[in-house]
Nucleic acid binder design. Sequence first.
DNA 1: CGGGAATGGTTGTACAGTACAACATTGATC
DNA 2: GATCAATGTTGTACTGTACAACCATTCCCG
Lengths: 147, 147
Amino acid sequence: MTENEPGRGGSIEIIQREMTAFARRARATAARMHPELSLVSYTLLGHLEDRGGCRATDLAAYYTLDKSTISRQVAALERAGLVERRPDPADQRVQVLHLTGRGTGVLAQVTDSRRVAFRERLAGWSGPDLERFAEYLSRYNAGVGEE
Amino acid sequence: MTENEPGRGGSIEIIQREMTAFARRARATAARMHPELSLVSYTLLGHLEDRGGCRATDLAAYYTLDKSTISRQVAALERAGLVERRPDPADQRVQVLHLTGRGTGVLAQVTDSRRVAFRERLAGWSGPDLERFAEYLSRYNAGVGEE
DNA sequence: CGGGAATGGTTGTACAGTACAACATTGATC
DNA sequence: GATCAATGTTGTACTGTACAACCATTCCCG
């Protein structure tokens, strides 16, 4: 009864393979495009921009990375002048992280060049296909971490 | 003239964001699921199975990894008993890499548990949606490395 | 044929990203 | 106030990766 859609398993197989291939490639591609901002740094900066600043612990929780990893990443970003730490008057333990002007600029620049790359890559796609693809990806990712 | 589809840029934005999020997560997820076989090892073994054996250089070219990286990965896989090297009678420089029985087994097992994970993740999807998603991913990935 | 260029692979070295554990500091609870 | 929890840093270790130098073999041209 459950087997009257012969294409279902095949589609899942393809999705699995393609997602795997993409994942394997992604970091290296990103690094090639922006040697000065790894995929991880980029996402961290992006989060800071979205939230208008947050704590290291929040980053760790959001990205399920160890706090030591975040600590060092943030230290590097600070050294690079992209992020600054501000004390939290309500809690002396906390440092609130904010983008600097330079950080905002670099983030915008990288975002932009990524946008261009994606636009080119998707140039031949129809509007409805793009919409559906975007919707599928969102749906797929939304199911993460809920198991 | 090119701007009469207001949704196009938005869709691309979403695709970019979702692909990025997925890429960031993928390795760690894979490692959590199969501590004994990283995403890279997994894809290398998969390639060996597909081709029924090949040379280290072929792996390097296919995955655009440095030959030193492949050399060490293969050494580790050999140490783990998953891969064996056979001399190429036609060329003394070459070692033809093959899965061992154990390698075939481990690969099958990991593939299977990945398949299960993907099936679960995509359980609520309709057949046509799966088909379209698979097609979109394939199309997206096919555009890689052609620039 | 002989010698330089190309090919296949390993090893030395370096770096990024990551985790875990130990720690210091600060805050919360009873 | 004593104890426990939360925030963050630091020491240490491991993986994946690249680049460069190298060795062994093969290819190709003059």
